[in-house]
Amino acid sequence: MENIIELKNVHKSFKGFDIKNFSIAVKKGFVTGFIGGNGVGKSTTIKMIMNLLQPDSGTVSVFGLNYKEHEKEIKQRIGFVYDENILYDHLSLNQMKDIVKHAYENWDDHLFNHYVELFDLPLKKKIKTFSKGMMMKASLTMALSHHAELIIMDEPTSGLDPIFRRELLEILHQLMQDGDKTIFFSTHITTDLDMIADYITFIHNGEHIFTKDLIEIEEEYAIVKGGLELLDREIEQEFLAVRKSNYGFEALTANKGRAEEVFGDMVIMEKPTLEDIMYYTKKGAEQHV
C-alpha cells in the first residue's frame, strides 16, 4: 500500500516540549485519525507536514516528495483546514475566493459554488461576522474546491455542534468514494472517528504510541473490570494502567487474549473507546515514571 505522508525519525524541540524520534506513515485511500490530548504535539506535527515548521532532524515527505525541491507541487495537491480562522476577516467569502483561487492550477468554481450552496454560506458578508461553524465550513469549502488528493485538517470538529459534525462526516464519506483521496485529521473528539477513521495514529507527549486500524484496536485492547482480590503486582504489570477504587478495579490491556486466559470468567471485559485508550495510556505513562 502506498504511503501519502511519511515522517521518519523526526525530532523537533521547543522550550519545554519535544517531538521525539517520531515516525508515521499515512496510507493512500484511507482516513487516518490523529488523536492525543491537548499540547502533546498534534498541531506541531501537522505544521511539519504542511512545512510551516521544519524538523530539527529527520525527514518529512508527502506524495513521496520532499519539500525542499517540490514545495509547490506538494501544496497544489493538499487541501487544508485549521482550527483557527486563517482567512482575512475583513473580506467577504467571494473576495477571499478570488485571492485563493489564483494559487491553484486545478481550482474549480463549480465545485466551490456547490459547497457554498450545500453549506448555505453567504458570499457577500464579511468573514468576521461568521460563526465558528460557518468559518469552518468556509475553510472546508476552500480545501475541497481544487481537487486536492490529500485533505489535512487540524481539529476540524472542535467547537462545532453535533449536527454539523455528523454532516461533516457524511461529506468526508462522500469524498472517500474516490479511491485516490486520503484524509488525515487530528481530533480529540474521538466519537467522530468510529464512523469514519480507518487508521488511528496516537501521539502522547511528543511520542508516537501506535498507528493501528480500528479493527486491530478492537481485537487487541480491552477494558477489564473485576474485584481487587484478583490483582497482584505481577498482574498489574500486564496492564497499561489500572484504576482502583474501594469497589473494584478497572484496567486497560493491550493484549486481550492474554487477559482472557488469565482471568477467564472472573472479570468483565469490554470493548474500550478511543477515549479509554487515551486516558489509560496517559495514566500509564505517569505511573511508570
Binding site: 485549521y82 480562522n85 486563517i86 485563493v100 494559487a103
Partner: peptide, 18 residues
C-alpha cells in the same frame, strides 16, 4: 501590516507558494 497577523501567514504558507 494587513498581512501581519500570523494566521494569514499560515494561509499563504499552506497555499502553493514558497
Amino acid at each position: 501590516s494587513t498581512d501581519e497577523k500570523s494566521p494569514i501567514h499560515i494561509l499563504f504558507n499552506s497555499l502553493p507558494y514558497t
